[in-house]
Design a protein around this nucleic acid. Structure first.
Lengths: 133, 133
DNA sequence: ATGCACCTTGTAGCAGCTACAAGGTCAAGC
DNA sequence: GCTTGACCTTGTAGCTGCTACAAGGTGCAT
């Protein structure tokens, strides 16, 4: 299949697929006589894997690790497990950060009952007196 | 005060402060005879404001807007209010995304009870069969 | 043969910094 | 007076994960 077809099948832009190849995430495809990339079903499967992992928040480096790990069927899967745990804990701490943020923003909103910016507590509570350019 | 002092006072790297100046976020400072930047208390206040807004997840563009708004004391503060509301809803949707992610990752983890990667459901559920390079 | 959709490469851009390199300045210590 | 070391200056390039060109080649229908 050509790059456009693969792109459509996986919901990825063709440019992103080429980028993955350059980045060593997706193995290079065969070429047709006219130098077009010619992808196999294996490529489709790998790209699906990559996109799903990326959507789950794994970094490119982590995806590379996952790919490398999944190429060794006979190794213990502790490592995969550990990567997932690590990702889970990163997601958890992001959620915690954002929840704290949410709280602060909510309080900011409540603090504004004024009409004019001069009296606005939001600006005030971001910082008392500011430099004017 | 010199850039290092301002950096320490606000928990910002000197390089970041120079970047803010280039980016038009922080007004340029006066210069000493020896061409060192010389910051005022107003700069300190502005930078504090900027860092706090950034920490609350506002983008550089939003910070620019907030700064511009807070320079017009007599305008209605609806706009500030609206920016905060917008940011709040972005944070909310990020939390929702991450929570869904958390759920999926949790299920991934549960699905792995195998010893070998070949039998590991995690790899399997990321994608059935993959291309080998 | 002409149009149009697709493909190729290469390069540059986005956010928001961070990290150099190569050099200038200033205060303290000897 | 001179050196050391911490600071400062500018400029440029790098990071992540794409995305967006530009300039040209290819494939297929009309």
């Amino acid at each position: 299949m050509r790059i456009g077809e693969l792109a459509q099948a996986t919901g990825t832009k063709a440019e992103t697929i080429r980028y993955y190849e350059r980045a060593g995430i997706l193995p290079a495809a065969d070429r047709t006589d006219s130098n077009y990339r010619d992808y196999s079903d294996e490529h489709l499967a790998t790209l699906t894997f990559v996109r799903r992992a990326r959507a789950l928040g794994f970094s490119m480096a982590q995806v590379r690790e996952l790919l490398a790990l999944s190429d060794h069927d006979d190794k213990p899967c502790e490592n995969v497990d550990q990567l997932v745990r690590q990702q889970l804990s990163e997601v958890d701490s992001k959620i915690a950060d954002l929840t704290a943020l949410r709280e602060e923003l909510g309080q900011l909103l409540q603090s504004c009952e004024a009409d004019r910016i001069g009296d606005c507590r939001i600006v005030e509570s971001l910082s008392a007196s500011r430099a004017r350019p």
